[in-house]
Every structure is written in C-alpha cells, then in structure tokens.
Amino acid sequence: MFKYAYRAIEVVFQREKAVKSSVWLIIHALILSLSTISAPSAVAQMADEEEGGRVSVQQELTSTGPEGMLRGTLTLPVADAAIPDGTPVVLIVPGSGPTDRDGNSPLGISAGPYALLAEALAERGIPSVRIDKRGMFGSVDAIPDANEVTISDYGDDVLAWTRTIRKRLPTTGGGTRCVLPLGHSEGGLVVLAVNSRLPNPCGLILLSTPGRPLGTVLREQLAANPANAPLLNEADEAITTLELGERVDVNALTPALRPLFIPEVQGFLIDVFAYDPAALIEETRLPVLIVQGMRDLQVGAMDAQILADSAQEATLFLVPHVNHVLKVVSSDQAQANIAAYSNPDLPIAKGVVDAVMQFIEQIDG
C-alpha cells in the first residue's frame, strides 16, 4: 500500500487557536479569492550566487490561459546548462485564496515558502516552475474575474503549464520530460483532481493537503474554538447548503459568519466542497509523496494519514515542528506559529526539502 517515512516520534497535531487568529486562518483556508489583486510577483531573469558556488537562474515564464497569459517563474539550477533528460521539473501549484507564486498573500503571509522551496531544489540540481493563479498577480489577465473559477479550471492550468515546461525544457533523447506537480494545501486537491488528465505523468507531491472534504475541515476548524460555540449550528446549516449545491443567503447569517460565505466565492465553495481528496487519491495510479508538518494549524496528521491509507502507492513523511508555510517553529504556541507566516527570513524546513528530494530520486524520469 504505502511506505512510512516517519520523522516524528510523537504526533503533535496543533488545533489550538487564538480567537483573533482563528478567523483569519479559516478565511485563508476557504479560498477568499480577491479579484482586485493585480500586483505581480514576477521575477525577471537573474542569477543568485548560492553557497558552494552554484548559480541558480530565475526566468519569467508564460503559458496560455483562457483569455490571457498565465505567468510564473522558472528556476534553473545553473545558467546556460542543459538539464539532463532524467531530471524532472517540479511544478509548484499554490494553495488557497490570493496566494502568489512565491507563496505569499495580502491576507498576511509573507513567508515566501514556494520561492524558498524553488531555491532549495535548485541547489540540489532540480529545476522548478512556480505559478500565479489565473486572474491573480502576474496572471491577472487570464480571466476577468478571479472568483469565477473551479478546481477543474485550475487543473486546466496545470495541464497548460505541463505543456509549456516540456516545450521549454525538452529532452535530447526524444523522450518526455517528467513534470512533477507539487500541490500545497488547496493546490494538493487541484493536482489530485487533474492527475487522471495529465499526459505521461510520473508522480504527484502533496504538501499540507487536506484528506477530507473541505466542508468537514471547516466544521472542525470552527468547532476547535470554544468562542464559536453559539455559531456552530448556523455555520453547519450554511456549509450543508453549499454541499448540496445551493447558495446561502448571506444577509440572513449572523454578521460574524458573513465573511466566510460572501456571495462572490459561494460558487467556488460549492465546487470545492464537492471533492473528496481520499476518493481522488484512491483512484490515483501514480506514486504519490505526502508531506505533513506536525505543527500545521490548518491541516493535520489525521489528513495525511487518511490520504496515505487511501492511496495505492504513497510515501508519507510526517515532519516535526513544521507549520503550514513549511517553516520550523520552536513552540506549540499559536502566536509563535502564526508569526512564522510573516517571516521571510526563516528558511524552509530542511525536512520538507529532504522528503521531496528522496521522492524525486526514486522517480523514473
């Protein structure tokens, strides 16, 4: 079934949240896409000297979107050097809400986890592409309204980027370049949903990916905060309505709940609530890597275990002390954990990079 690669002796699944921060975390997890965002995080071609003399090169890359260009950043291990045919390219698919190609968000995230992951992979000889979601940031022209999206739409973009990567980095021997979609949080759901449509797939990587339908996860997040007790019945009814494919009258809700169910995102919530990640991974015929931080406030070890138990071929890494933005945090306190969301100076967790590299080494590119 699957291989365990435990990096933790004890399971530490942090569910405790401060009242102020819990609302923000739930909003982030629920994909409140902001159509007004247009500031690109594009990186022009540049070279960065890394320790040991290695030079990584970052280039702006474009792909075809529905109505305009999709944009992202290609990170190459070295300048002007051919990528060996057997070397895969990691395609980093971003998580929920207005998350840019670097892993940052105007909702309070400036940790840059995707940019740091790309740099860490380049140091070890692996190229990657990290992308802006359609309708946002550098991809703002791809569609008129960033809220008018579905998981399948995002899957279409993964297919477009796969074609672009293979065209940009062809093999010399006439084979097909291995493109490894790496989905973080909601991005993991996207790559699970699209995997059956991928041409010549070679594997999937899931970081901090929910193992249960997101309606179930939201109910749990709300119930985890005792202060939300008076709202739970009303919230449950709203979630159930969306799960049935019907819209919620936001004006009839208690004001505290309205930000979770604003009309602009209800169409997307109806779509995303319909997906069961465990059912999707059960149908997956590819080798899958599942990496879960043990101090993640938004997705927990239970979700990773559900995914691993449901998969036909999966490797599970439970990485101690790592939170949702892939940083090591030294405390179980929620305040310290959330502080890492806005600290770009914290390096990406080495355990996460090690897990990805071990998986890549086993992939037949």
Rank of each mutant, 00 (worst) to 15 (best):
I126P: 00
N195W: 04
A18S: 14
E148Q: 14
V129H: 04
R7I: 07
L116R: 08
P344A: 01
L316Y: 01
T36Y: 14
P113F: 04
F273A: 05
S22P: 02
P66G: 12
G97M: 03
D141R: 12
T315A: 09
T64K: 11
V179A: 09
G97C: 03
I205P: 07
L316M: 05
E220R: 11
E186G: 00
A82P: 11
I270M: 15
I270T: 09
L231W: 03
R219Q: 11
Q45A: 14
V319M: 01
W24T: 14
G203P: 08
I83A: 00
D48M: 15
R54N: 11
R166Y: 06
L76D: 02
M46P: 05
L107N: 08
I348K: 01
L214E: 03
R212K: 13
A111H: 06
L218I: 14
L76R: 03
A42S: 15
V325W: 02
A308F: 11
P213D: 10
E220Y: 05
G174K: 09
S185R: 01
D332R: 06
A146N: 06
Q59A: 13
L204V: 06
A146S: 11
P263G: 04
E243C: 10
T75A: 08
K133Q: 13
P98F: 01
Q305K: 15
D364C: 00
T171E: 10
N147S: 14
F273E: 11
